[in-house]
Write a protein that binds this DNA or RNA. Structure first.
Lengths: 216, 216
DNA sequence: CCTGAAATAGGTATTTGTGCCTATTTACAG
DNA sequence: CTGTAAATAGGCACAAATACCTATTTCAGG
């Protein structure tokens, strides 16, 4: 009996390339493919694959939201995130959702194979670059070295405002849109920048795009 | 004798997936891989592969610049651009550089195979979605319907400046970096904005990212 | 040879953004 | 019940961006 996987990535060529790669293993079989978040959720409703390999940046429904829904459909569903981003915030979100695999696109091909087998055995698998700082944070937390921890977490409201900023709204427009004072919008903006250690709008927008808070 | 190709993409998994895909064809062989623009140019200096398959968004040197250099090294070098962007400006630039293949990442896998064979035969190959508007523009041009054409084309210098802006440089920093007056940097910025019909930095950055002028 | 585009540089004025303050209300956790 | 975080709102000062202008040099194409 082989491990059944579902592939979700918005780029067909990447998806098929990955399929070709995985199919070289005798014990793994691609049973379905999806090109956006909604599609893979629909597949999860019908099929019962062993593992869902999901790209984060996808249209309609992003990979993390899709993963969340897939795991709600059946808590036994396993997800491996395939991403080009190695951001703390992203990985934190993925892990807190209960995702057990997180593989970076710029890592070697055999990592995804290792990840599939590990997650199938109900183990965790993170790309080395990621596990490095996950472990580091764990050590820091154990050693009570927290306090100076700079692990960023924006509030809901801050996320909302950051998205508007990244979409090209000025502070005045953000304020109007949210029916709050310009001063409040500015205060949120400043808090976001302080939390992130960012000093320029350009970097704020790049951050939002990188984090998938807004799409291009 | 098989067709020798070089793969350049910054994501190893994508590269290897593509390699697995291409290797299924008996007449095509991957002879080298690169993870950034500089690497693939270096490969081009030594090897004489038949076709270079190049992703646009790569660090250090982007795909189009790399392609330009590769074709300068030997005008007989053939390049196929593999991109996730279907923007007019991009394709125009690729074609004007003399690139004969342009395949979108969200197209089917066999397109890249078709493209390799076509370019090997010295023919053009564009993904259908692209060829559609290339043909449309051709028809428009024939019918003298130009004049109201709003097809944007930034100059080299403008692209350079836009990239810096999108990377978070202020006008002052751009000026310092390029050893020009702040006034000149501002003038370029204004020209870019006017050409693109953009009025805000946020939109400028989004444009640059969308066009692949800079990577996230 | 001349025209036009591109790169260079400057002026001036207004609007936004950024940094550094204070302060109130609400809600939740210890 | 009390302290803390989050959302709200404001003031003040300086930096940066935006929107108008003009003008010179250089270089390629008709």
């Amino acid at each position: 009996m082989s491990i059944e996987v579902v592939l979700a990535d918005d780029h067909a060529i990447v998806r098929q390339g990955l399929g070709a790669l995985i199919s070289q293993e005798q014990d793994i079989k691609v049973v379905a493919e999806a090109s956006n978040g909604k599609e893979v959720v629909d597949i999860a409703k019908k099929s019962s694959a062993d593992i869902f390999i999901i790209d984060i940046t996808m249209p309609i429904l992003n990979g993390l939201e899709a993963s969340s829904q897939i795991m709600q459909i059946n808590p036994k569903n396993n997800v491996i995130i395939l991403s080009m981003h190695d951001n703390r915030a992203f990985i934190e979100r993925a892990l807190s959702l209960g995702i057990k695999g997180y593989v970076l696109k710029d890592s070697a091909a055999d990592e995804i194979i290792l990840a599939i087998r590990a997650v199938y055995r109900n183990e965790y698998f993170l790309s080395p670059r990621i596990s490095t700082f996950v472990i580091q944070d764990y050590i820091d937390a154990r050693g009570q070295k927290i306090g100076e921890k700079k692990i960023v977490s924006l509030t809901e409201r801050e996320r909302e405002i950051l998205q508007l900023i990244a979409e090209g709204y000025t502070n005045k427009e953000v304020a109007t849109h949210l029916k709050i004072s310009v001063k409040t919008a500015l205060a949120h903006r400043n808090n976001i920048m302080q939390k992130l250690g960012i000093h320029r709008q350009a970097d704020l927008i790049r951050y939002a795009l990188k984090e998938g808070i807004t799409a291009i």
